[in-house]
Amino acid sequence: MSGQVPTMRRYDCMVALAPLITDHLIVGNVARTSFELHAVMPREGNIYTMGMGLVTPLCLGLALAQPGRQVIAFDGDGSMLLNVGVLATMGNTPAPNLTSIVFDNQSYASTGGLPTASGGETDIAGMARAAGIGHAVTVWTVEEFMVAARHALAGNGPSVIVAKVTKESPDVAPKLMDGRENKYRFVRYVEETSGQTVLKPSIVGRKGAE
């Protein structure tokens, strides 16, 4: 354990990152990470409230399917540790357009605040580097965060940025949208910005239908 106490807020990282976001695809972890994502940058290219352990793997699939644009996971320490094997998959899968930002408040903050392993001896960025991920760093200030983010979003991924943040979360409202509406809006955004067809609800009348 480093003994260093985080002073940076997750929300401030998002505010700093927002001006860089254009046609990026972003997936937010469950609970307040997604509330803050929606408050700072409400956009059709976001998926909110993905389940613990699923955020970064889902982004890896997205990044491989959409190699021409950047994909960002707004993950958390508890979520990453739940499915930490994804680091090994990232380390062995070419996905230069994938950035996993692990907002590490060193606790299960939304469920009572008990510590995660990263609040003890576990170094998530070190695990990522050992898994074969070339760009994996821990940052403690917004300035360090932005240096790492700019490098990652220049196509130097897969990247893991472990942002050491406080447990504090501003009083922002949750979005009023369930996962299905979110999915449809996200997919329509992908279709409109990529020219691809994702939703194909009916075979009848489709050209070339079998």
Binding site: L25, V27, G53, L54, A63, Q66, T89, V187, V198
Partner: peptide
């Protein structure tokens, strides 16, 4: 190639969202 089928399912979900 994955090391856990749950991770694999989530990767598939992302791939579908991306077309």
């Amino acid at each position: 190639a994955v090391s856990n089928e749950g991770e694999g399912a989530a990767i598939c979900a992302g791939a579908w969202l991306g077309g």
